[in-house]
Structure formats: structure tokens, C-alpha cells
Amino acid sequence: MSVLGLLIVIGLVLAGIFLAAFLWAVRSGQFDDTLTPSLRILGDGEPLDMKEGGIE
């Protein structure tokens, strides 16, 4: 049964890491606006030739 105790500790530590990651994400504002990033990604991928002086 001491195996169970060990597993609990490991489980808690792992879950704790995820909790910490979540708390960090909230504090850094990642949950403030959940819509814009999904639009922003669509604007990525601009071809290089455009970036350097138009397409004409």
C-alpha cells in the first residue's frame, strides 16, 4: 500500500505543475481575450516577396 502513497505524491506533483501553468497563463492575461488570437493566426504567413516591396 505504500506504493499508493507514492503514486498520490507523484499525481499531486504532476497536477500541481499543470495548476501552476494555468495560474501563470491567467495572470499573464491569456484568458482576457480568447477571440483575437484565433483571428491573428490567419494573418500570419505573409509571403516574403510582399514584405519586401509590393507585388507589382
Binding site: I8, G11, A15, G16, L19, F22, V26, F31
Partner: peptide, 21 residues
């Protein structure tokens, strides 16, 4: 709302783990 998210995260974490116990 950030503080609500934090509370939700902590409460969910604790609820899941205590249930496991």
C-alpha cells in the same frame, strides 16, 4: 474576471484530487 479564473482553477484542482483520495 482573472480572479474568477484563478479561483476556478484552484477549486477544480482540489476537487479532482480530493475525490481521488
Amino acid at each position: 474576471r482573472r480572479s474568477l479564473w484563478l479561483k476556478l482553477g484552484i477549486a477544480g484542482f482540489v476537487a479532482g484530487n480530493t475525490m481521488l483520495f
